[in-house]
Simulated scan of single mutants.
Amino acid sequence: MEESVETTRKSVKTYVPEYQKDEWQSHAEELGMSQSEFVRTMVQAGRKGFDSSLEQPRSGDANPGGNGLETRVLELLSSDTYSWDELLETIGDDIEARLEETLSDLQDENRIRYSGRHGGYTVIEDTDGN
């Protein structure tokens, strides 16, 4: 199998006005994306507008209006031949990385926490009981 683009995840933080964050979150929900995925996608789309010669490595994430798994499988198969088990292992690694990043993002946003007492991750309730 051919080596793929480095996919180690790193955190990027920025500060925006509350109304803008709310708009981004709303738009992300409309597209069925996490807020992190939405911001990543919008930044990459914006970069293409600045310099069309930039090579944009694909992260394997879902894309608006598309099938992320289908795209990832086609990308893999365009560069090499994979068995069922190899594809499953490669795609599984991508899903594990996305889950880890999503859980980290939700914890950073104080929307979930890990609770040994409850045996895993739990949603943090709002002060108004939601």
Rank of each mutant, 00 (worst) to 15 (best):
E2Y: 01
E3P: 01
S4A: 02
S4M: 01
V5D: 02
E6P: 03
E6S: 05
E6Y: 04
T7I: 02
T7N: 03
T8S: 09
S11L: 02
V12W: 00
K13E: 12
T14Q: 12
T14S: 15
Y19N: 05
Q20K: 11
E23D: 11
H27D: 12
A28M: 13
E29K: 15
E30L: 11
E30G: 11
G32P: 14
Q35C: 09
S36K: 05
S36F: 04
S36I: 11
S36W: 02
F38E: 03
V39F: 05
V39D: 05
R40A: 01
M42E: 04
M42L: 12
A45E: 12
G49V: 08
G49N: 12
F50E: 02
D51G: 01
S52G: 13
S52E: 12
L54N: 06
L54H: 03
L54V: 09
E55W: 01
E55I: 02
Q56F: 01
R58Q: 11
D61H: 13
D61Q: 11
A62F: 06
P64D: 04
G65L: 02
G65M: 01
G66I: 10
N67K: 07
G68I: 07
G68T: 06
L69H: 08
E70M: 14
T71Y: 03
T71A: 12
R72W: 06
L74R: 10
L74K: 13
L77M: 15
L77F: 00
L77Y: 03
S79T: 08
D80M: 15
D80L: 09
Y82C: 07
S83A: 10
S83R: 07
E86F: 14
E89A: 11
T90K: 07
I91W: 07
I91Q: 06
G92S: 08
D94H: 05
D94A: 06
D94W: 05
E96D: 10
E96L: 08
R98E: 14
R98C: 02
L99Y: 04
L99Q: 03
L99M: 14
E100S: 10
E101P: 04
T102G: 03
S104G: 07
L106F: 04
Q107M: 15
D108M: 07
D108V: 13
D108E: 11
E109A: 07
N110F: 09
R111L: 14
I112T: 09
I112Q: 02
Y114F: 15
S115F: 03
R117C: 15
H118N: 15
G119C: 09
G120E: 06
G120I: 03
I124Q: 09
E125F: 12
T127I: 08
T127N: 13
D128W: 13
